Amino acid sequence: MTSKTNREQERAWNGDEGAYWARHHELFEGSLARYQPAFLAAAAIEPGHRVLDVGCGTGVTTRAAAAAAPAGHAVGVDLSSAMLDVARELAGRAGLANISFERADAQVHPFRSGAFDVVISRTGSMFFEGPRAAFANLCRGLAPGGRLVLLTWQQPGRQEWINEFARALTGRELPASAPGGPGPFSLSDPDEVRAVLGAAGFTGIELTAVSEAMNYGRTVGEAHEFLLGLLGWMLQGQDDARRAASAENLRRVLAGHATPDGVCFGSSAWLITARSG
């Protein structure tokens, strides 16, 4: 990785941000759990498939892929050494022999041509600096007719979770971000997604809208501690009194979303499928 943006992404994910995800992997993995059945159904992984999981984090989707392909193999790649350490540990506990993890940048890593039958990425592909080149690289790594399956966020205005958190901590909603650059909403525009994937060599591009509740903790206290650690950047520039008030605002919002199943907020995503040419 040579660009400034890529270096910044690597420093974040292989530094404090990735370490935070690794320490709280159960909450991060659980927050997206309700999207998992539809995501795996779209992946349609068969017993002998070779699967690449891009931005695998601590490996929940890689483990699911390995379990679905007992005669195949699942490879998870990520920039975070800390998350990959957790992924390897959890895969070992699960007794999965057909799984491996590698610290690599999927945008430029020299995957062997046609090495995979399925490429999956659950909220990981939005952080590519150059998405067209990155997806072209992944397309080369797929066998002809191979399947790409992504889960990406829809537009920020459709995300109760981030807007409720932003209002509580900053007094305003998260500003809309332009598509194309790295960030959680870079693949939120369907036309942009079709253009990016089409230019990368994919065909049969389909986007399906899916909406599920995100779970941020079993209790208000757990969710509050977790989110303050995750979203501390929103408090930058606030004095001590304002920070305390913002933290209390967040606690009130979380209390209003407490359910018997945990502290839940609405979210909307795109389930994207395509084929290599």
Rank of each mutant, 00 (worst) to 15 (best):
57 G>S: 05
112 R>K: 13
23 R>N: 13
23 R>I: 10
65 A>R: 01
75 V>C: 05
177 S>V: 14
8 E>A: 14
205 I>Y: 05
199 A>V: 10
257 H>Q: 12
240 D>M: 12
231 L>C: 13
17 E>R: 11
81 S>C: 07
162 I>R: 01
185 F>V: 07
51 V>F: 00
186 S>I: 09
120 I>C: 01
188 S>K: 02
238 Q>L: 15
215 N>M: 04
108 V>Q: 06
14 N>H: 12
9 Q>R: 05
49 H>M: 03
63 R>H: 11
18 G>F: 05
16 D>N: 08
107 Q>W: 09
81 S>R: 06
55 G>C: 05
78 D>W: 00
14 N>P: 06
42 A>Q: 10
11 R>M: 13
153 W>E: 03
142 L>V: 12
151 L>E: 05
264 C>A: 11
52 L>Y: 02
244 A>T: 15
248 E>I: 11
3 S>M: 13
240 D>V: 15
12 A>G: 07
84 L>M: 11
251 R>E: 14
225 E>A: 15
58 T>E: 10
16 D>G: 13
85 D>R: 09
160 E>M: 07
253 V>D: 09
272 I>N: 02
28 F>I: 15
212 E>R: 12
268 S>T: 15
29 E>M: 06
71 A>V: 04
60 V>D: 10
129 E>C: 04
86 V>G: 01
234 M>G: 07
204 G>R: 12
104 A>T: 08
198 G>W: 08
126 M>V: 14
43 A>Q: 01
145 G>F: 06
163 N>F: 07
240 D>P: 01
67 A>S: 06
234 M>F: 14
207 L>F: 08
213 A>R: 13
101 F>E: 01
74 A>G: 08
146 G>R: 00
37 P>Y: 12
14 N>G: 15
74 A>K: 00
221 G>M: 09
131 P>Y: 07
136 A>E: 10
99 I>H: 01
199 A>W: 09
276 S>T: 11
93 R>H: 14
148 L>S: 01
247 A>H: 07
21 W>P: 01
194 R>S: 13
91 A>L: 08
82 A>M: 04
94 A>P: 03
98 N>F: 04
253 V>S: 13
128 F>T: 04
145 G>Y: 02
170 T>E: 07
169 L>P: 00
65 A>H: 04
